[in-house]
Design a protein around this nucleic acid. Structure first.
Lengths: 342, 342
DNA sequence: TAGGTTAGGGAAACCGGTTTCACAACAAAA
DNA sequence: TTTTGTTGTGAAACCGGTTTCCCTAACCTA
């Protein structure tokens, strides 16, 4: 039924090793033979079995992307396709494929590693730093298996690509300061969450540079969803001197904050300013439009892809890592407070 | 280096065929041998090569998802991870993997088919109906290759899963009518676009049922992005009697419309109501919050996955297809016009 | 013209599994 | 006791390619 290399060999009256060499454009085959064999392939509509090729070549030509779908759904949804597209844009032209795998929270890591890595399904792995445990890193390293994390990884030297979250925190906070805000709260993020610590660090840095003392009670920890943003603002508003502005961990938490502030009848940006990380495609459309920190997630994916290829080709390279710079999109939600102060 | 089935066979002092049978839990192997061999596998940390297995079993155990990343990026971004998760939720437990492949616009279809299908990389395909040309369907059918499209497919009998777009159009329009709106415009969508025709058909149906004549000039065709929504509203407002409400093809076009209306100083929903397809996660957060038609994209993915498995197992089944029902999320942007009329 | 290169292609082993079939050993039936 | 059946295992072919190594013919060089 399906036409194989044997059929081609028979039809062309050559050995199948010769056909294989034609497929790989070996210099040991004459021009004439090549064109003849190729014509026959064309005629017989032959496509080599990639499975067989991979077995023989001992390479799956497949890149794995590992995510925790249930958990990341909220957070990555708006960007996921961009990241994937970015990865594909670099690995696709190199004839690699992309396999998306789900890692459930209850999945013992060994399981994932076995299923994907040791079984030879993939040649390299890209994963969010959130699901990359240290154990997993150790196991991957012990197998000499190439991988890159999306998101900075501090506890270990591994190759990673990320946006500069600390700088982002500085930019957002600095922008609010520039606009005349002085009492800036930080909403969302768990204390031990990696991405939170970086962002928060930039926030503190900007305050420090502006000579404004950091206040513990101005950071409202939590999962950074809409509900938390909402509750956080309610909590802040209960105090005698609520902050005059907010930096939110992401758009959802900013939405919650927005809602709470509006319900309280407080003017944005008149009385309170809001800036947020992660410029989701809809943040220009809120009321008022949200000043937010844009991250080119396509670039992030592409960078991770490039790094992975690099690591795969030169396994002995020192761990590369790359910080991309975010971009501040200034919108109405942080319009000058100065005006009101004067 | 890597431990193979041979190594296990040698260590267990059995033939490799026996090891293979243990792997597949063949009833022909005795309990004792099974446990003994399994212990050795455990000890030697053996994981079978999935590539070899696939070659021998003539099945890749891999499902392909084909999309045009560049083109779909805008439209599918907010849902993509959900769809993927849905697919994974059904194929994952059946030990299938998911390969995401990009189909560029300039890619001749034969290329994709060869690369993915004839090379044996995937056992089944899921694709958006937008990129499934009739030629592609024909080729896939001629290869007896199982596939499912996400999105209704009319020109051909193929298995597909979709939301009921016509019913959605009816629901949105019907809702506006219920609220007292009478002159409803439809914004966005190209005349030949499949998804548009269905949605528009529901819109017309609702008008018909309400005894309101359909007006050609109330449909503003276009690509359904923010800019088009914006321009469309400008155009509508130029007329002497602008419509009193809008149904938008998607959230982006609704955003554009929103912006144009607000800039013109027209009240929503006081003077004009807006309802839109596709309840993006941020439509509750616009100003005013957008009434929109929710589509459970996880379910859509899961349904497509289930159908594909079904088609793969029983190729001779008549083409199944499934319409899921959308859900109307009523928000402020369509509050009763009746009030204003009385 | 002998000896050494080089170019082109074939045979066979191999990648790591699966599957078919033969067969030995033992049990049950006649 | 012979026949028939059953159970458990192994040998070898196979999946569809790649790679190594060898061979032959033609071409060079002295």
């Amino acid at each position: 039924m399906k036409v194989t290399i044997q059929d081609i060999a028979k039809a062309a009256n050559v050995a199948k090793s010769t056909v294989s060499k034609v497929l790989n454009d070996s210099p040991k085959i004459s021009k004439e033979t090549k064109t003849r064999v190729r014509e026959i392939m064309e005629q017989m509509n032959y496509t080599p079995s990639s499975i067989a090729t991979r077995l023989a070549k001992r390479s799956s030509h497949n890149i794995g992307m590992l995510i925790d779908m249930a958990r990341e759904s909220e957070y990555m949804n708006p960007f996921f396709l961009n990241i994937i597209s970015g990865i594909e844009s670099v690995i696709g032209p190199m004839k690699y494929e992309l396999t998306i795998a789900n890692m459930q929270q209850d999945d013992p890591e060994r399981n994932v590693i076995n299923r994907l890595v040791r079984s030879g399904r993939i040649d390299g792995l890209i994963a969010n730093n959130a699901i990359m445990s240290e154990d997993m890193v150790k196991t991957l390293n012990s197998l000499d298996f190439p991988f890159v994390t999306i998101g900075e990884f501090h506890s270990f030297p591994v190759p990673w690509a990320d946006y500069d979250n600390a700088e982002g925190g500085r930019m957002l906070t600095g922008h609010l300061l520039d606009e005349g805000y002085r009492d800036i709260a930080f909403i969302g993020g768990e204390p031990l969450e990696r991405i939170f610590t970086k962002r928060h660090q930039g926030y503190r840095q900007a305050l420090l540079e502006a000579g404004i003392p950091y206040r513990e009670d101005r950071t409202i920890h939590g999962v950074a969803d809409e509900n938390h943003g909402y509750q956080a603002v309610l909590e802040l508003l209960r105090s005698d001197h609520p902050p005059d502005s907010l930096v939110c961990m992401n758009n959802y938490s900013a939405f919650g904050a927005l809602k709470a502030i509006q319900q309280a009848g407080i003017a944005i940006p008149g009385e309170i300013g809001i800036a947020t990380f992660d410029d989701y495609p809809f943040s220009p459309h809120t009321n008022p439009p949200l000043t937010s920190l844009f991250i080119d997630t396509f670039q992030l994916g592409a960078t991770a892809g490039r790094m992975l290829i690099e690591v795969m080709n030169q396994p002995d390279l020192p761990y590369p890592s790359l910080l991309l710079q975010p971009k501040l999109n200034i919108r109405e939600s942080t319009l000058k407070r100065k005006a009101g102060l004067e």
